[in-house]
Simulated assay, not measured.
Amino acid sequence: MADAALMDRVMGALIGGALGDALGMPTQLLSPARIAALYGHVEGFVAPAADHPVSKGLPAGAITDDTEQALLLGRILVESGERFDHARWVNALLDWERDVKARGSYDLLGPSTKRAIDAINNGVPAEDAGRGGDTNGAAMRIAPVGIMMPTEPLDALVAKVAETCRATHNTSIAIASAAAVAAAVSLGVSGGDWRAASGHAVAAARLGAALGHWVTGGDMAARIAWAQELVRGKAEKEAIKLIVDLVGTGVASQESVPAAFAVLEVAQGDAWRTAVIAANLGGDTDTIGAIAAGMAGACAGLSKLPQDRIAELYGIDIAEVRRLAADLVAARRSKAGPGKEDAA
């Protein structure tokens, strides 16, 4: 794939994720009924309610922890080289939380990440600190791994996902869910469409489920495939109800990650539509939107995303994102070798 086309897909993944994140920012943690009462049907960026538990005070179009941590992970990946630097990553997360607190934000580290970092600060080794992390924090920020790692060999991609999960989300469910998202992004970046990306995601989830500390919960690969089948061919309103009632939209990986793939199915791979659908689900709307629209953006490219909406994003430096994207592309090229990747 030509450099320009590859960069278009990479930027589509990162900026698509930001669109989904920002659109879901004011509706996160709210019920579908509350969202409808406040906004009707969210179709564009809106400011959060004054009493919102985590988003209050943010302007319409503001990104949240989903995008900020994804970009942070991308930078740590580039700086780490071949071996992921866990200490640098943990310190970067701590610095990030201090920074967002200083900005007056209420959207701080998620439950699994917070527990793990507290454990590390108390002397627990990084490989043990994440043994209880099963929420969606790893999946929400994993897109840069999918960008950096070639589509094949899939076990190498999944191994890199597991490596980045070790300190905070070192469980079978979290690794499987993050592997699914990273694999979908990687296939999109290589030129694949969203349907092919979904299939690749299921294969990656199967591999990821064998890694990390086993925790109880539904099989991620099976749940992703089931969630997409559940909504296939359904009208949007009916599909949303099925996602809310049956798949679930909470922070648990086995709810929000299959929900994101279901949203991708309903939207037929349209990145903005995925963001809109996710924002109206209720629950962890910003994370579901960031994951779903990031995967859709990887499969479509930045040039296919709504440029007017991108211009409305708040709190993101597009030029800085582009520099990170170029570094991740260079890393991907070096791993793939000449002529071995991105021929789709």
Rank of each mutant, 00 (worst) to 15 (best):
E265V: 02
G283D: 09
A290Q: 01
A293Q: 11
A262E: 04
A298K: 13
I277D: 11
P258C: 00
D270Y: 03
A296M: 13
A271N: 14
G297S: 15
G297K: 12
P258E: 00
P258V: 04
N280H: 04
T285I: 11
S253D: 06
N280E: 04
Q268C: 09
T287E: 04
T287Y: 00
T274V: 10
A267R: 05
Q268V: 05
A252N: 08
A271F: 13
A298F: 13
P258N: 05
P258H: 01
G282R: 03
G269F: 05
A262N: 08
A260H: 15
L264H: 03
R273Q: 13
R273P: 06
V257F: 09
G283R: 07
Q268Y: 01
A292K: 14
D284C: 08
T285E: 07
W272F: 13
G297A: 13
A293T: 15
I288Q: 05
G283Q: 11
A278C: 09
G289A: 09
A290K: 04
A296R: 12
S253L: 01
G282Q: 00
A260T: 05
W272M: 11
A267H: 03
R273L: 05
V263F: 08
S253I: 05
A267K: 04
A293P: 08
A252L: 14
G269Y: 11
D284M: 06
Q268R: 15
M295W: 15
T287K: 08
I288T: 02
T274P: 00
G294S: 14
I291A: 04
I277T: 03
A262W: 03
A260F: 11
A292G: 10
A290R: 00
A278G: 12
A290N: 07
I291M: 13
D284P: 11
G297Q: 13
N280I: 08
G297Y: 12
Q254G: 01
A252T: 08
